[in-house]
Amino acid sequence: MSSGTNVLAEIGAERTRQDAQWGGAAHDDALPIDEFVRLITDYAGWARVKAREGSRVEARQRLIQVAALAVAAVESLDRRGAPRAEAAPPAAAQPGEGLRWE
């Protein structure tokens, strides 16, 4: 956060905006998780387009939305009782460890 901005606070503010617009947990929990994934993919695609166009501000804004949507999806999974992955302490993490991509 060298630029003096608090990215996590921005993501939280975007979540608040999304909840106000769409209805919060009741709306989120009615969405299938694959719909969250589609939305995240769409917004990430827009971020890529904006970055290619040289609009770093708009690309960043879309990425904040992507992060907020991902948080909403995880919160919804948690409310649905999805099992949580065990997180290793940051000090124990080694390069190449963590989530496995399939």
Results as ranks from 00 to 15, higher is better:
V7R: 04
Q18A: 05
Q21W: 10
T41Y: 03
P90Y: 08
G45Y: 01
P83Y: 12
G24C: 13
Q21I: 02
I33E: 14
R38I: 13
D28M: 03
A93T: 14
E75L: 09
I40H: 05
A59F: 01
A13T: 01
A25Y: 04
L8Y: 03
L99Y: 06
L8H: 14
A68C: 07
L8I: 10
R100Q: 15
I40C: 04
R62A: 01
T16N: 05
Q21H: 10
R48A: 01
D28V: 08
S76H: 13
L77M: 13
E86W: 10
L31T: 01
V57R: 09
A47H: 01
F36G: 12
S2K: 13
Q18P: 02
A91P: 07
V57M: 06
P95M: 15
E97S: 14
S55K: 14
D29K: 01
Q65P: 00
R79F: 08
S76F: 12
A88G: 11
R60G: 14
R38S: 03
Q61D: 14
I64K: 05
A59N: 02
Q61M: 00
V37Y: 09
D29Q: 10
A26D: 12
L69R: 02
A59D: 05
E53M: 09
A88F: 07
E35P: 04
P90C: 13
I40Y: 08
G23H: 09
D28L: 05
P89G: 15
E35S: 13
V71K: 00
G12H: 04
D34G: 09
L63W: 02
A51H: 00
E10R: 05
L99F: 09
P95D: 09
V37S: 04
M1H: 11
A30Q: 01
L8S: 06
A88E: 14
P32A: 13
S76T: 14
A9L: 12
T41P: 00
H27P: 02
G81Q: 02
A47G: 10
R56I: 12
A47C: 08
Q18H: 02
R60L: 10
A91N: 15
R84S: 05
A47V: 04
V57L: 11
P32H: 08
E10Y: 01
Q65A: 07
A20M: 05
A26Y: 12
N6Q: 11
L99G: 13
A30Y: 03
A70L: 07
P89W: 12
R38H: 12
T5P: 04
S76I: 09
A72F: 08
A85R: 02
R79L: 13
G45E: 05
L8W: 03
E86H: 13
R84I: 15
G12C: 04
R56N: 07
E86S: 11
E35M: 14
A59K: 02
A87K: 10
V57D: 10
N6W: 07
R48F: 01
R38C: 00
Q94R: 10
A47F: 11
